[in-house]
Simulated assay, not measured.
Amino acid sequence: MPGGRLTQQERQRIAAGLAGGLSYAEIARRLDRPTSTISREVARNGGPSGYRPQQAHRATIQRARRDTPTPLRTAGAAPSGAVEEEIIELAVRSGMPRMTARVHVDLLLSEDGRRTAAELTRRLKVSPASVSVAVNSLVQHGYVRRERDPRRRRDIYVVDDEAWYHSIVISSRQTLESAQAAMAAAEVLGLDRPVGQRLAKAGTFLERVVLDMMESADRWRPFLR
């Protein structure tokens, strides 16, 4: 049985097998590879419906480069671990729970922006329940999207460039609801009263800022594509 990494030709045959409706086991048999090799290759590169052999091959090369020990750092350069911790601290200071920040940063710094819950649990050395709470929060706020691997019946969590747009839109909509609630409360309490005037001003300010932000996000969204 051949060992080592899959070749580009093997990846093309995997794509052809998936398109032809072959099972992982049958593809593995034809390539004389373990079934686990095929299932892992497909899962980490888009799943059965999104597998692209050329992209998968490039991603593997990039991961290999990332995993290759680097030479001694230049004086003043920060190690990757320090960079990761710095980003986590920034996220925590902005109000994100630390566990959620750790999961988010691990996804952000992954080569292909994809992890399963099991991978996150193993990499971060935390409980599955902690990962579940964190990813649910990230999905809810638009930072991460959830994909389903139908063959292995598991979720894959993905962070891509469009996530920044979606997170801004979700946050803006929530703030807009608060602004509108403030303006509605102002009318109920009376616009001739100090409390009503204060709520009306705050609601109007938030509404204008949020609408400008959403318009800006739509205008600059093409840069993420």
Rank of each mutant, 00 (worst) to 15 (best):
G4Q: 09
Q8T: 08
Q9K: 12
R13H: 14
I14V: 15
A19S: 15
A19N: 13
G21M: 09
S23I: 00
E26W: 03
A28D: 00
R29C: 14
P34Q: 10
I38N: 02
V42K: 00
A43F: 02
N45E: 06
P48E: 14
P48Q: 08
H57G: 02
T60S: 11
T60V: 09
T68R: 07
T68L: 12
P69S: 08
P69D: 09
L72T: 12
G76T: 09
A77G: 11
S80T: 15
G81H: 14
A82Y: 15
E85Y: 06
I88T: 09
E89T: 13
P97I: 12
R102Y: 06
V105W: 00
L107E: 01
L107F: 02
E111R: 05
D112A: 05
E119L: 05
L120N: 00
L124H: 10
P128L: 07
S130W: 07
S132P: 03
V133Q: 07
N136D: 14
Y143S: 03
R145V: 13
R146F: 04
E147H: 06
R151Y: 14
Y157A: 00
V159F: 04
A163C: 10
Y165R: 02
V169R: 03
S172G: 14
S172I: 00
Q174E: 13
T175S: 10
L176C: 11
A179E: 01
Q180H: 07
A181N: 13
A184K: 10
A186K: 01
G190R: 09
R193I: 08
A200Q: 13
T204Y: 02
L206I: 14
M213H: 03
M214H: 03
A217P: 01
